[in-house]
Design a protein around this nucleic acid. Structure first.
Length: 625
DNA sequence: ATAGGGTTAG
C-alpha cells in the first residue's frame, strides 16, 4: 500500500499545505482541502484497521464457525449439496436445510431458494417456522408478497405456528410493494387479535412503511407508542426516521431526533445514522456542516464506509464539485475502501453534468481495466450525457450496446434516450423507441410521461400533446404540477396562449397549487404575446399567493418589458431585483446592452445594471462600467 | 442451533 507521505506528495502541494498549516479554521482553504484533511487525519482508525481488529480478535469470540451449508459459494454448489443431502438416510436435520436455503437467499437467488423449499416439502422434511420465514422472504423480495401469504396458509396446514419473524417478513413485503394500507391493517390486526406481540424489528418495519409514504409524524407517533408498550426503540428505529426526515429536507427535526436518541435514550449512532444525516446536509448544500459531522464521526471513532463515501462522491458531483468527488475517491483508495461501480457511475454522471464527455467516456472505458462491470445505471448516465450534449449517434450506439452486453435497458435508459431523440427533433424515432419500450413490457413512469409531453411540445406537436394529455385523463400522472408547467410553457411556445390560460385555471380544480415555475411560465407566455398588463398583474399576484417570484421570474418579466419598450417599468424592476439580491442572467444582460446601444434604455441605468451582474459573468462578458 | 428491520449511483 502507498504510504501516506507518498500519497500526499502525489496529490501535490495543495493537500500538503492543508495538512501543514491549520486547515480547519483557515478561510482561504476550500472545502476540498478541509474535507481531505479531516479524512486523512482519521487514518489511525481506518477501515483496514477495523477489519483487522474485528476479524482477528473480538468478533469471533463466541461465534461459531460457519457450517458447510452456510458456506455455499454458487448456485451449482448449493444444488449439488441439496441433492446429496436428500439422498442421505436419515435425512439431515431441518436446521441444515434451512442454512442452505438461507445462503441461497442471501445470494439473491430467491426463486432457487424457494424451489429448494418446495422440494423440502415434497420430500417430507419437517419444515419449521425458520424455513417458512426464509421462503416467505424470498417471495417478498421478488415482489410476490401474495405468494408469501399463501405460504402463511400452508404454515397452518403444517401445524407450524407463525411467529413474529414470519409476520415481520410479510409486513416488510407489503411495504416493499407500496401496499401501505394493507401493511397497517395487518399490523393492527396482529396486535388486536394477539396473533403476535410486535418486537423492535416489526415496529421498525411498520415505521419504515409510514416514512415511505411521507407520514413522518405518524412514524414518530409509533416510536412513542412502542416505547410506552415496553418495546425499547434502538438505533435502527431512530435511523429509519432520521433518514426519512433528512430525505424530506427536515434536517432540524432529524437532528433533534438524533439528539434525543443519543442524550435521552443513550443509544449510540452508527455509520448508517451518520451517513443519513450527512446525506441530508449534502442535499441542502450545507457543506460546512457536512465537514463538521465527518469530523464528529472521526471523534467518536466511527469510520465512513463504502456507502458513506459513495454518497459523498455523488453529492459532490451533483453539486458540480467534481474535484472534491475525485478527492474523496483518492481518500477511499488510500484507506483501502475500493471504489465500486456505484462510485464511478456517480463520477461519470458528474462529468456528464458538466458536459465533460471525453472525461466521462475515458472513465467509462477504463472500468473494465479496474475490474468493474458497467451496469444499466452506468450506461444510462453516459447515454444521458451524450443526449444532453446532442451527440445522439453516440447515445444511440451506447443504447444498443446495453443489450449487446447482456443487460436490459430499463425505463430510465429508455426515457433518457427518448429525451435525446426529441431534443434533436427526431419525433418519429422517438415514437418507434417508445413502441419498442412498451413491447418490452416497460411501463412509462411520471418521468417518461413528462419527457414525452415536453418533447412533443418542443417539436410543436400540439395535437399529439393534447391527445396524450386527455388520454391520460385524471390519473395520477396528470395530478402533478410539473406536468402543468410543461404544458403551459409548451402551449404558449406553440402560440396557444388560450390553452395555456385554461390549463392555468384548471390545475386548481384538480387540487394542485401553482408553484414559482407555473407562474413564471405563465408570465413568460403572456409576455411573449405582448400582454404586459396581464403579465404584470399575475406577477403581483405571486407575492399575495405566498409564492414570491424568483430570479427567473424577474428576468422573464424584464425581458418582456424590454421587448415592449417599457422603460419606466424596466428601471423599477431592476431596483426591485437589486433589493431582493437577484441578478440578471446572460440573455437578459445582452438584451439590456443591446437596448442601451440602440438608445431605448437610458445609459443612467448602467450603474444599477452593473450591480445586478453576478461575479462569474464579469469574467466572460463585456460589462459596461 | 437455523429466520425478519435502517444508509449509496442513472
Amino acid at each position: 500500500m502507498m504510504t501516506r507521505r507518498a500519497f500526499i506528495e502525489l496529490k501535490g502541494i495543495f493537500i500538503t499545505n492543508s495538512l501543514t498549516t491549520t486547515p480547519l479554521s483557515s478561510p482561504q482553504l476550500g472545502l476540498q482541502s478541509t474535507l481531505l484533511a479531516s479524512l486523512l487525519h482519521s487514518t489511525s482508525f481506518s477501515n483496514n484497521g477495523d477489519r483487522l481488529l474485528h476479524s482477528t480478535s473480538f468478533s469471533n469470540i463466541g461465534d461459531r464457525p460457519l457450517s458447510r451449508y452456510q458456506k455455499v459459494t454458487s448456485l451449482d454448489h448449493a444444488f449439488n449439496l441439496f441433492d446429496e443431502m436428500i439422498q442421505r438416510r436419515p435425512l439431515p436435520s431441518v436446521v441444515k436445510f434451512n442454512q442452505l436455503l438461507n445462503s441461497v437467499a442471501k445470494m439473491k437467488h430467491f426463486s432457487s431458494s424457494l424451489h429448494l423449499f418446495k422440494q423440502m416439502c415434497l420430500i417430507g422434511v419437517p419444515v419449521n417456522e425458520y424455513s417458512i420465514s426464509i421462503a416467505i422472504k424470498c417471495c417478498c423480495q421478488m415482489s410476490r408478497t401474495n405468494d408469501g401469504f399463501a405460504l402463511l396458509a400452508s404454515c397452518f396446514r403444517r401445524a407450524v405456528v407463525p411467529n413474529v419473524f414470519v409476520f415481520s417478513t410479510l409486513l416488510d413485503g407489503l411495504v416493499l410493494e407500496d401496499r401501505i394500507i394493507e401493511a397497517e391493517r395487518l399490523f393492527k390486526k396482529l396486535i388486536k387479535q394477539k396473533l403476535c406481540e410486535p418486537d423492535v424489528v416489526m415496529y421498525s418495519t411498520m415505521i419504515k412503511g409510514l416514512c415511505k409514504f411521507g407520514n413522518n409524524d405518524i412514524a414518530i407517533g409509533l416510536l412513542r407508542l412502542m416505547d410506552e408498550r415496553g418495546c425499547e426503540p434502538n438505533v435502527v428505529v431512530y435511523s429509519t426516521i432520521i433518514d426519512s426526515l433528512c430525505k424530506d429536507k427536515l434536517i432540524d427535526d432529524a437532528f433533534n431526533l438524533f439528539k434525543e436518541m443519543v442524550f435521552h435514550k443513550g443509544i449510540l449512532p452508527d455509520v448508517i445514522t451518520y451517513t443519513s444525516l450527512i446525506h441530508g446536509l449534502c442535499n441542502l448544500g450545507r457543506w460546512g456542516e457536512v465537514y463538521k459531522l465527518l469530523k464528529e464521526m472521526e471523534d467518536v471513532r466511527i469510520s465512513p464506509d463504502l456507502q458513506t463515501f459513495n454518497m459523498l462522491v455523488d453529492a459532490f458531483c451533483k453539486d458540480g464539485k467534481v474535484n472534491e468527488a475525485e478527492a474523496v475517491i483518492d481518500i477511499m483508495v488510500e484507506r483501502g475502501e475500493a471504489p465500486d461501480i456505484v462510485t464511478y457511475s456517480s463520477l461519470i454522471d458528474g462529468y456528464c453534468l458538466r458536459g465533460e464527455m471525453i472525461k466521462a467516456r475515458t472513465l467509462f472505458d477504463s472500468l473494465t481495466f479496474k475490474g468493474l462491470v458497467p451496469n444499466v445505471v452506468t450506461y444510462s448516465s453516459l447515454l444521458n450525457g451524450y443526449c444532453k450534449s446532442l451527440k445522439i449517434e453516440e447515445a444511440m450506439h451506447l443504447f444498443h450496446e446495453i443489450t449487446r452486453k447482456g443487460l436490459k435497458p430499463d425505463i430510465v435508459s429508455y426515457s433518457a434516450m427518448l429525451q435525446g431523440l426529441f431534443r434533436v427533433g427526431r419525433c418519429g424515432a422517438a415514437r418507434k423507441l417508445f413502441d419498442e419500450m412498451r413491447s418490452q413490457g416497460l411501463i412509462p413512469n411520471e418521468c417518461t410521461y413528462r419527457i414525452i409531453l415536453a418533447g412533443l411540445c418542443n417539436n410543436h406537436q400540439v395535437e399529439d400533446v393534447l391527445y396524450l394529455f386527455h388520454l391520460v385523463g385524471d390519473s395520477k400522472l396528470n395530478t402533478d404540477i410539473q406536468v402543468y408547467n410543461i404544458l403551459i410553457d409548451g402551449m404558449s411556445k406553440c402560440g396557444k396562449l388560450d390553452i395555456a390560460r385554461d390549463l392555468f385555471q384548471d390545475l386548481t380544480l384538480k387540487g394542485l397549487k401553482p408553484n414559482v415555475r407555473t407562474y413564471t411560465v405563465m408570465v413568460s407566455g403572456l409576455c411573449r404575446e405582448g400582454m404586459l398588463e396581464e403579465a404584470k398583474h399575475l406577477f403581483h399576484r405571486m407575492d399575495e399567493s405566498g409564492c414570491p417570484p424568483n430570479s427567473v421570474t424577474y428576468n422573464v418579466l424584464l425581458q418582456g418589458y424590454l421587448k415592449n419598450q417599457n422603460s419606466d417599468d424596466v428601471e423599477m424592476l431592476l431596483e426591485e431585483m437589486d433589493g431582493r439580491r437577484y441578478s440578471v442572467d446572460a440573455s437578459t444582460l445582452s438584451m439590456l446592452i443591446e437596448k442601451i446601444a440602440a438608445g431605448s434604455v437610458d445609459r443612467s441605468m448602467l450603474k444599477l445594471i452593473g450591480k445586478l451582474v453576478p461575479k462569474e459573468m464579469m469574467d466572460t462578458t463585456a460589462v459596461p462600467r
